[in-house]
Design a protein around this nucleic acid. Structure first.
Lengths: 222, 222
DNA sequence: AATTCCATAATTTTCGAAAATTCTGGTTGT
DNA sequence: ACAACCAGAATTTTCGAAAATTATGGAATT
């Protein structure tokens, strides 16, 4: 793996996890120190992240972490529901055995990690498997562009969800694994309407938690 | 403007206009010659274009022009219809006077350029104004993510449309300006259903031309 | 006190060369 | 004939320094 790829992965993860403050400048000297490399690979990574809307840049003034806002969260959520309901509908219609099997396997892997979370709170591994499960649900839709947009919106959402997750002590009375299982079951049974309803409910519930966190933070910050 | 920005603009335009063969390697030495700059700004531009799916890259094997295919064209078209009908519906519902005024002005500017096309066939200026008009139609939708996806899909489509446009001598019995005018009129009258129907028809007609060109080329290439 | 100006510092951007890796064509060995 | 191997060439990737630009803080001016 090249240094530019390491820089991309590291920066991406650190931005999504909230390691940098939203809107803060990303100075090359600091990043070079942090990731142990020169400017070239860092600038390449930053340019990619800029195209993905995770960082902003202004000519000759360098790069900044893209700002977070409640408005953007709501926008990304609405687009997610639009894209993902359409993708899930198509996947249920078109998906073959490989698609169905990968839903089963990613759900199982997610459950394994979720069960061991209490002991070893490895947020990174849990998050990867969560992403993989949701990707698997939609992968059968047959549209590369739809999946591309799913990835973008999933990442955009992660920036709001992960900090809320880390800040919350418990899981707020939710059995998220049960939600995932029910969703997978409906999808595998090709019950389109039920699956869509469960997907929307799943996201709306998470959104409610995040809205609460953001309202609390805005009051605190102001 | 920095060299990296010039490189980005130049590469983007050259790729969209078909100046490079689809799938062909983009060697840094050649690009440095072509655009008159060193490797650094070129690599930054290429990384951005990679994130936008206009170029592909493989570790230590450099960059290539992203391949074209009929399947990708159809996928991008379907997504465009989905995103743009939703965006236009929202814009008609939410758009204010500024939005409406910019539709009028971009349509007028497009018409001026279209009228002088016969004399000075400046495809670049015409294309810019065409893009600006379609952007103006949707700009009132209030969703940055929807507009972001519009831009991506517009560009993806351009790679198929521009070569077809350049290859065709006439405009194939279509009065494209009339289509634009009718579309703008319906939008400004806030006649949602009529506007959506005209938008879809506009794209489907263009798609038909492009499908013809691609079928001809595939037969020729095979 | 407020503003403009300037020198200095900090930072981004770009280059040119070095390092690392892949590609190519010919040679050797079977 | 054919595959494996190797040296040399071509190419990508990275670094370190130079060039260009912006930011900072204090002195001079109104």
């Amino acid at each position: 793996m090249t240094l530019a790829q390491k820089a991309y992965n590291g920066l991406r993860q650190d931005i999504v996890r909230g390691a940098f403050d939203s809107g803060s400048p990303l100075r090359l000297a600091e990043l070079g120190e942090r990731y142990g490399m020169g400017f070239s690979p860092l600038r390449e990574a930053l340019n990619r992240l800029q195209a993905e809307r995770l960082v902003t840049s202004e000519s000759l003034r360098g790069f900044r972490v893209a700002p977070l806002s409640l408005a953007e969260f709501e926008d990304a959520l609405a687009m997610r529901l639009m894209i993902e309901t359409e993708a899930l509908r198509a996947a249920i219609r078109l998906g073959g055995d490989d698609w169905a099997a990968s839903i089963v396997s990613t759900l199982y892997a997610l459950k394994l990690q979720a069960d061991r979370q209490a002991a070893t709170p490895d947020i990174s591994e849990l998050e990867q498997r969560h992403h993989a499960f949701h990707r698997a649900l939609l992968a059968g839709c047959g549209s590369p562009w739809m999946l591309e947009f799913f990835e973008r919106l999933y990442t955009a959402n992660e920036r709001y969800r992960i900090p809320a997750l880390l800040a919350s002590d418990g899981r707020g009375g939710r059995d998220i694994q049960a939600e995932h299982s029910a969703l997978a079951e409906a999808v595998l049974a090709r019950d389109t309407e039920k699956a869509l309803a469960l997907l929307v409910a799943h996201y709306q519930r998470t959104a409610e938690v995040i809205r609460g966190k953001m309202a609390a933070k805005e009051k605190h910050g102001a």
